[in-house]
Computed example of a mutant assay.
Amino acid sequence: MIVEVKRVDNQGRIVLPKKWRERWGDEIILIELEDRIEILPRRKPNFSQFFDIIEADIEEDIEKELLEELI
């Protein structure tokens, strides 16, 4: 585990280390909980691995539903 302390600038920004951005991408999900804020990488699901395996109706807002399950 790597721990880094960062300051929030006067515009509310923090800078993630370059190695982290290269590993996890440049889009994140912020989750506000009662006692903390969690930062998670936003990764779009790779549905191509499931082609020709199953048939399913995918809702337009599936990402929102998946996020709600995390909270």
Rank of each mutant, 00 (worst) to 15 (best):
I2A: 03
I58P: 01
K6S: 03
W20G: 03
F47C: 04
G25R: 07
N46C: 03
D26E: 14
I39T: 03
E27S: 10
A56T: 09
E65H: 10
P17F: 06
E22Q: 15
W20M: 12
E34V: 02
K18W: 07
V5W: 04
N10C: 13
K19W: 15
R42S: 08
N10G: 06
E59K: 10
D57L: 11
I53V: 11
G12D: 07
K44Y: 08
K64V: 13
S48V: 12
K64S: 10
Q11F: 10
F47T: 08
I14Y: 02
K6C: 13
F47Q: 03
D35G: 13
E69T: 00
E22P: 01
L70H: 05
K19Y: 12
W24G: 01
R23N: 11
E4M: 07
G12R: 02
K44D: 15
E69D: 07
K6H: 09
I71D: 00
V5P: 01
N10I: 13
R7K: 15
F51M: 11
G12M: 05
E4C: 03
D9K: 01
I28P: 02
R43Q: 07
I53P: 00
I31R: 08
R36D: 13
D35A: 14
E69K: 04
D52A: 08
E22H: 12
N10L: 06
I62H: 15
K44V: 14
P41Y: 03
D57P: 00
Q11P: 00
I54M: 08
D9S: 10
Q49A: 11
I2T: 10
K18N: 09
F47N: 07
E69F: 03
E68F: 01
V8W: 00
R13C: 02
D26T: 11
R36G: 08
P41R: 04
I53A: 05
E69Q: 06
D61Q: 08
L70A: 01
I37Y: 03
P45N: 07
I39F: 05
D35R: 15
I54K: 04
I28D: 07
I54R: 05
N10Q: 12
V5K: 14
L40V: 12
R36T: 04
E34D: 15
L66I: 09
I62A: 13
R7I: 11
V3Y: 05
E34Q: 14
R43C: 05
F50C: 06
V5N: 03
E55H: 11
I53M: 07
D35N: 15
I14P: 02
E55A: 07
E4Q: 08
S48P: 03
D9Y: 01
F50R: 01
E68H: 02
V15Q: 12
K6D: 00
M1G: 14
F51R: 10
I29C: 02
Q11L: 14
I62F: 14
D52L: 05
D35S: 12
V8Y: 05
L40H: 12
E32D: 15
R43H: 12
F51Q: 12
K18V: 12
I37S: 00
E69G: 00
L67V: 01
W20C: 08
D52H: 04
I53D: 05
D57M: 09
E68L: 04
I37E: 06
